[in-house]
Design a protein around this nucleic acid. Structure first.
Length: 545
RNA sequence: GCCCCCUUAGCUCAGUAGGAUAGAGCACAGGAUUCCUAAUCCUGGUGUCAGAGGUUCGAAUCCUCUAGGGGGCACCA
């Protein structure tokens, strides 16, 4: 269907006009045709002519095209196209011949993009919100990669500063407790059971080695050991979830390797930092932020913002054309200062885009599950994956756009029924595989079917299915441009929503060898798109269910 | 107090970059399987797009105000 864009663009240019993009949409009602465009209406103003008149002219110059069966002008100036069956079948053949690669349009340029996501503090296990960020980030990375960009996925490790110190001290306190020593548990310390467990393991390993040694002296060990273990947990949890990073960037290393100093020195020499009240400030307000921000406190220690500046500077040094940060929505107030940093570093602020992922409220059977981080009682991502499965969890995360609240009901997610759309989609795939197996039993080899068998396809349900298949490139393009993987999820439900009824009304395997072949080929294309789209989302395509 | 986001069917949400009569799933009721997997299908209806103004040939979509919900304000992380 996407070919229409070029056709329309050419027709528009024959009128001596131009459109920034050709908008194509699938009309709600089939009677309006297969696909339509409102370009004539958008051209009305620049051309100072009636939209319907413009539409008539575009229609006139396109109706001879072999791909187009008919083109009508309707309503205020819509152009409604009906695609010829011949052309649809040719397109089907092309898909069968060239596979999924011909479903994704080439991007206008090949970009190097970096996506940073999850980046949870290594102070405890991941919770559901992190999972949402992971699902969105990974799907977005797949999407951009599939669209031809070079993508790097990175996890930023906050292993310097107060939080990991607090982690170390919490473990230290539990360790002391093991040996009956009093040590005041740090205020805001981490109280989860995993801390006590870790302290227990350490106690078994090292015995009383750190008893009688102050935290100031022993802290290094507990901090290092704690962050390492937490990071291992995070990494394995993400792997279980099916999310793998290309790179893990340690904040601490930004300091020890001198990158923070180098970056700040550079900014300072350019006059973008200044001293006031004994602290070092970044002139964020010169670059669009509300106020200036401290990077080095008057006690000489760095704020997190300091390493964030250096981190983004470092990303730019590494030569990316585009940086994408995926943050929890509660960090939205941080965006202006980060954008200010990008501009101060001499880059277009559009180089950095921040995708905010909204909070997840966890329910069980309609009732909210209390999540209290302070008490350490919260449901972890791992627990949810174990209970409902990684595919389902991801799918639910990807059925909403990132920036909208999400209700995650564990009981609903667990149901293996139609309340659970992921099964609906996966079942379509499994059903197709099942038909292949049946076909094989009857001695029909998919590879042996000649492509021209597809001329036997003629049922309206078959044409509808075929049109939906050929719509995929358009959906993909939209999702790619908007950086919105959830559009793929909705498309999948629509595709499955055409397949299942088709399956129920028309038998694929029949006595008619030609028709059987034709239908198997159609299923081949459905299968191809299902697998392609599922792989973008990072969701498996099961052979059987 | 200031700033950001959200408000669409009973519920959960889509609605693409301002386009046609605003959609889907679930829930609810009834029905379908001698035949490729019933995790399926078929048939039933539902809206003050939070409210009020404005811009536009055209607004759920853009602007202003109001109400409700969430989030953020630091030499915290």
């Amino acid at each position: 269907m996407i070919f229409l864009k070029d056709l329309i663009r050419e027709a528009v240019s024959r009128l001596g006009a131009e459109v920034p993009y050709v908008e194509l949409e699938v009309p709600r009602d089939e009677k309006f045709g297969d696909i339509s465009t409102p370009v004539a209406m958008t051209l009305a103003r620049p051309l100072r002519r009636a939209p319907r008149q413009i539409a008539e002219e575009i229609a006139g110059s396109l109706e001879e095209d072999p791909a187009i069966q008919s083109v009508d002008v309707a309503g205020p100036g819509f152009l409604n196209f009906r695609i010829s069956t011949d052309f649809l079948l040719k397109e089907l053949e092309r898909v069968l011949r060239h596979g999924p690669d011909c479903l994704v349009p080439e991007p206008p340029e090949r970009r190097k993009v970096q996506i940073e996501f999850v980046s949870a503090n290594p102070t405890g296990p991941l919770h559901l919100g992190h999972g949402r960020g992971a699902a969105v980030g990974a799907a977005l990375a797949n999407l951009l990669q599939r669209g031809g960009y070079e993508v790097e996925k990175e996890f930023y490790i906050n292993d310097a500063g107060r939080q990991v110190r607090l982690l170390g001290e919490s473990i230290y306190a539990r360790y002391q407790e093991r040996f009956g020593k009093e040590y005041p548990f740090p205020e805001d310390g981490y109280k989860g059971d995993y801390i006590s467990e870790l302290a227990g393991r350490i106690a078994e390993e090292v015995g009383e080695k750190y008893i009688g040694i102050s935290f100031d002296e022993a802290g290094g060990f507990f901090i290092e050991r704690g962050t390492r273990e937490m990071l291992d947990t995070i990494r394995t949890d993400l792997e279980t979830f099916g999310v793998v990073f290309d790179r893990w960037q340690s904040e601490k290393l930004l300091y020890t390797e001198g990158l923070v100093k180098k970056c700040l020195d550079g900014l300072r020499s350019e006059g973008k930092l200044y001293e006031k009240d004994g602290a070092l400030w970044f002139r964020a307000s010169d670059y669009g932020d509300d106020k200036d921000r401290v990077v080095v406190k008057s006690d000489g220690s760095h704020t997190y913002f300091a390493s964030d500046i250096a981190y983004h500077w470092y990303k730019i040094q590494r030569g990316f054309d585009e940086l994408i940060d995926i943050w929890g929505a509660d960090h939205h107030g941080y965006i202006p200062r980060m954008k200010a940093v990008i501009r101060a570093l001499g880059e277009d602020e559009g180089k950095l885009s921040v995708i905010l992922v909204q909070m997840v409220s966890l329910l069980r059977g309609g009732k909210p599950v209390q999540m209290s981080k302070r008490s350490g009682e919260f449901i972890t991502l791992r627990e949810v994956i174990e209970e409902v499965g990684a595919d389902t969890t991801k799918f639910i995360f990807l059925t909403r756009k990132a920036d909208s609240h999400l209700e995650f009901d564990i009981e609903v997610a667990k149901k293996e029924s139609s309340e659970n759309p992921v099964y609906y989609v996966q079942y379509a795939y499994a059903r197709i595989q099942s038909i292949y197996r049946k076909a094989a039993e009857q001695g029909i080899g998919l590879e042996d079917i000649p492509f021209d068998a597809i001329m036997y396809l003629k049922e309206p349900e078959e044409m509808r299915l075929l049109k939906k298949i050929l719509l995929y490139p358009l959906i993909f393009e939209g999702a790619f441009r908007a950086r919105e993987p959830h559009r793929i999820t909705f498309y999948l439900q629509e595709l499955a929503g055409l397949f299942h009824p088709y399956y129920n009304t028309h038998r694929v395997l029949s006595d008619d060898a030609g028709l059987t072949g034709a239908r198997l080929l159609l299923l081949r294309a459905v299968e191809l798109v299902l697998r392609e789209a599922l792989s973008v989302l990072g969701i498996s395509a099961p052979e059987r269910m």
